[in-house]
Write a protein that binds this DNA or RNA. Structure first.
Lengths: 118, 118
DNA sequence: TACCGCCCTTGAGCGGCTCCAGATCAAGCG
DNA sequence: CGCTTGATCTGGAGCCGCTCAAGGGCGGTA
């Protein structure tokens, strides 16, 4: 598939995909005879994973490290597992932050109601 | 209180607080005779709110707008309410993204276990 | 008096995109 | 066949939100 479809499937922008390629986050991307990138389904899945990790706050540096380990094969699974577990723990912190913010907003909104209502 | 305490209480860094002041997100900050910023408890609370909004993805532009409305008094409460409601809706989207990522990670981690275990 | 710690300002640097200009190529159309 | 349209390409500039470094001042302690 071409870059537009890869973008649509992953949720990343076309520019971001090119930026990720430059940044060493992607496997080698084949080119058609027209010089344009052709994404395999596997790479599209990889983009979806990257999008999900990034959207939840993983840094590019860590994603680059993860990509590098992935390239090196199954022997790196223990370290990859550690990275994903660490990120999973991170998700909990983010969820807690959302909860705190939601509570704060609920409180503020209620105060607004009181001011307007009374 | 001085800036270090305001930072500790809000969770923002000292540099970020100064940056927010420059960016028009804060009310005027008093200075002591030594030239140093003195934060009132109210401003410290405001910093906590900003930190919470920012941590959950509100853009500085929106926060600046909110600060501006706040400065203009109670007449702007309807618009402020709309802004906070919009952000609250945003929190739900972020929560959903966290959930999707958590599910993806659980799936990946399980596959790692299978590869390593078998 | 010398040092330490906290604060100040200015300005540069960085991470992560995002956008723009100018060029190329394929397909569709009169 | 030439022309336009649309998707892609590259290189480079620009933007947002910090973050850090340099150089300096003030106040307290040994």
């Amino acid at each position: 598939m071409k870059i537009a479809e890869a973008a649509a499937r992953s949720g990343l922008s076309i520019d971001t995909i090119r930026f990720y390629e430059r940044s060493g986050l992607l496997p080698p991307i084949a080119r058609g005879s027209d010089g344009m990138r052709r994404f395999s389904p596997e790479t599209a899945d990889w983009l979806r994973l990257l999008a999900s990790l990034r959207e939840t706050g993983m840094e590019l540096r860590a994603m680059r490290r993860f990509a590098e380990l992935y390239r090196q094969g199954d022997a790196t699974i223990p370290e990859r597992r550690r990275m994903l577990q660490e990120h999973a723990a991170n998700l909990e912190l983010r969820r807690a932050a959302l909860d705190r913010c939601a509570a704060l907003l609920a409180h503020k909104l209620q105060r607004y109601s009181e001011i307007e209502g009374g």
